[in-house]
């Protein structure tokens, strides 16, 4: 158990808005930036007051040298307060937390990885694409494919970032305002059935019903899939036992044994909200 966790007060070095509801903070934090693995997250204190009381778990979005980014959607009072933080200020964070994706293929690197993101699920997957690109077998001609699902065109996030990494990006929106009309899992099903994609590994992050569907598809097409679960957490480092998920080997902590699980290990029926 040599994984190090730090409580730090990094400086906010940049802030970018995407529309009204999304923002990206860059944090200068050598310790966490160097140790972080894709799929890991940090716990952020959004206010120094006792209310809201708990930290907010946010996926590590991207790492550049000694800095890392978090991407956040304003969904409630906690994220609203966080959105008020400005460059030059400091943030109380704990991380890196959780297990992260396993993205190294034993021998040659994963030849054709496919990333499937639903909604805010894109947040940790950009970091994953960065790492996959670094470690990918250079002889492989297949790019990293990324499927992004969102409600409408306005909610499609990180398309540019993935493209800048050389990924082949496909979009699905519920209302058809961009790309494929339908759910991102329907798009994946179509691409697999038509053999347009022949992935050796699928990485997913998004709402639970989407990940459940992803598990079903991956089982059918016999593709190993890792999914990163979202959960309400009280601590984020395994102490409170509040964020457990039912798996084939009993309850596991989303924050500690996860948030990344093999899709087939999760008992979805009892837990799909």
């Amino acid at each position: 158990m040599g994984t190090e966790i730090y409580q730090e007060r990094p400086k906010i070095t940049g802030k970018k808005y995407f529309g009204q509801d999304y923002f990206n903070l860059s944090l200068y934090c050598p310790t966490i930036s160097r140790k972080a693995k894709p799929g890991q997250f940090v716990e952020v204190k959004v206010s120094s007051a006792d209310d809201p009381l708990l930290r907010r778990p946010l996926g590590i979005h991207s790492v550049k040298g000694n800095s890392f980014h978090i991407l956040c959607e304003i969904v409630g009072r906690g994220t609203e307060l966080l959105s008020g933080k400005q460059p030059g200020g400091y943030l109380d964070i704990i991380g890196p937390l959780g297990n992260g994706f396993n993205f190294r293929h034993p021998a040659s690197g994963i030849r054709h990885p496919v990333i499937v993101a639903g909604g805010m699920g894109v947040a940790p997957l950009v970091f994953l694409a960065e790492k996959l690109k670094e470690t990918k077998n250079s002889k492989s001609k297949m790019p990293i494919s990324v499927l992004i699902g969102a409600r409408t065109k306005k909610q499609v996030l990180c398309e540019k970032e993935f493209k800048a990494l050389g990924c082949d990006v496909k979009i699905a929106t519920d209302d058809g305002s961009a790309g494929f009309k339908g759910r991102v899992t329907d798009l994946l099903k179509y691409l697999l059935r038509a053999a347009i994609l022949k992935p050796q590994a699928i990485y997913g992050c998004g709402p639970k019903p989407m990940l459940k569907e992803l598990a079903v598809i991956c089982k059918k097409y016999r593709v190993p899939a890792q999914v990163s679960l979202e959960a309400h957490m009280s601590c984020g480092f395994g102490a409170c036992l509040g964020c457990a998920v039912k798996t084939i080997s009993g309850f596991q902590r989303v924050c500690k044994e996860g948030p990344v699980f093999n899709a087939q290990d999760i008992i979805w029926q009892e837990d799909a909200v």
Binding site: D50, H232, S234, C240, C243, D271
Partner: peptide
């Protein structure tokens, strides 16, 4: 003890509720 079903915790004003169930 396996503990109670999810959700087990939630935030409340300046506090939190838990029902872990002695896992």
């Amino acid at each position: 003890r396996a503990g109670n079903p999810m959700p087990r915790t939630c935030e409340t004003p300046a506090g939190m509720l838990n029902s872990i169930g002695l896992e």
